[in-house]
Amino acid sequence: MRVLSTVKFTLLRMLRNFIVLLLLLIVPIVLISLFSLILSGAVTDTGEPYLKQPAVSLVLCFQLFGGSTVMYMIHSELFTEHRARMQMLPISLTMYAFSIMLCGVVYSVMLGVILMTFTQFVLGLIWEHWLWTIYLITLMAILSSVVYLVFMFAVKVYKTAERLSEVYGIGFILLAGLFFPMPDHAFFRFMGSYGNPLTLSTIAIHEMSMNNTSKAWFAANILLAATIILFLVMMVVGRRRFMRDRV
């Protein structure tokens, strides 16, 4: 398993990509801090801080964009500049691609956990179910990587894949009604609840904090099922892309 020797370097490369760190860590920290200043001390009727909802949303929202690093790295190493050199290495490129994907997920989850730690220990927000939240962040991170790779494998032009991934990220934030309320229509109701990974994970966290375990698991399992299905789709389109580009 020589691919294992590359993991340390893949993670190092991700950590040294300061633009990604700025966008996926610094920006949410600044936003949550701003919300904290605005909503300082305010609580809902149930005694929950008003900051909780935007904090959960922000931690999960940025997971929608976590797949960008994975998509970029796999594209540059297996399809463009580095392709020839990588193909000459005595390792399985499929395993190498998986290792990049796993590193991307770990990196994305790590950023999410840093955000949770910041909000709890700096802003004083209590996350009741850490492991459950980390599980949902992990699902969101895997889903994001899978979706981004499906886009990258399915379209010929990388820029198109980038635009599609932006539509995925921003689109689900819009459909979740975070910027403004969506029209009262069956489609938007569905996309604002069970058809949206962002709302599914938010529901799962919220229901778990209300001790509605079954509802929480139901939402999380829909997310898991979607991830598994899209993972299979990714395998198929990825294989097709590898075969096509080999010519």
Binding site: S5, F9, L12, R13, N17, R85, L89
Partner: peptide
């Protein structure tokens, strides 16, 4: 390779360690 295919985020030493490890 004709194109420069090194990892810009890794130092010269780390680049070589990457490839040495793969072999």
């Amino acid at each position: 390779t004709q194109e420069i295919t090194i990892f810009e985020e890794l130092t010269a030493k780390e680049n070589l360690q990457f490839f040495a490890g793969v072999y």
